[in-house]
């Protein structure tokens, strides 16, 4: 039977060695796939929507107001009820454009078009009876209800 001092030493050594090993593994594995400082997904989306925020502010929507939101996916997919698989773009757009309230609907006088990609935006605009107010590039549009 080991005496108390030996058991203390073994216990302390085990705690330290396992803890240190876990941390070293964590550091090595995480640092292999670090994004660049400005290359993280939320930062990229924020940068893309920054001109829209300035545009809204110029229209008097800087401290309050609400705008609609359309994307290339359905309203349900913009804001999935119980899923961790989607919905990030809508949530990140709300984060980028706060304190303006983003409503997951095209039925508002002003609507944010979050439509990156090479595909045409025309079908989405016609399906939702929207027209381009301002094209800020990179798929960021300020849209309005078509007459």
């Amino acid at each position: 039977m080991l005496d108390a001092r030996t058991r203390d030493r073994i216990g302390a050594a085990a705690l330290t060695l396992v803890g240190a090993t876990i941390l070293i593994l964590l550091i090595v594995q995480t640092s292999r796939s670090l994004p660049s400082w400005d290359g993280e997904a939320v930062t990229i989306l924020e940068r893309r929507l920054a001109p829209l925020r300035a545009d809204l502010a110029a229209r008097g929507l800087s401290e309050t107001g609400k705008v609609g939101y359309v994307s290339r996916v359905s309203q349900g997919e913009n804001l999935p009820g119980d899923s961790s698989s989607g919905g990030r773009d809508f949530l990140a757009a709300q984060y980028a454009l706060a304190p303006i309230l983003l409503v997951n609907s095209p039925d508002l006088p002003l609507v944010i078009g979050d439509l990156p990609g090479p595909e045409s935006v025309a079908p989405i605009l016609s399906a939702n009876r929207l027209a381009i107010e301002t094209d800020h590039g990179s798929g960021a549009y300020l849209l309005r209800r078509a007459e």
């Binding site: 330290t16 550091i27 995480t30």
Partner: peptide, 23 residues
């Protein structure tokens, strides 16, 4: 000494985790 090493590793891990998700 072991505690100092562990705290150093914890700081390094914390920094790496932050850089992984700066937001």
């Amino acid at each position: 000494a072991a505690t100092v090493v562990m705290l150093g590793l914890a700081v390094a891990a914390y920094v790496v985790l932050f850089l992984d998700k700066p937001n």
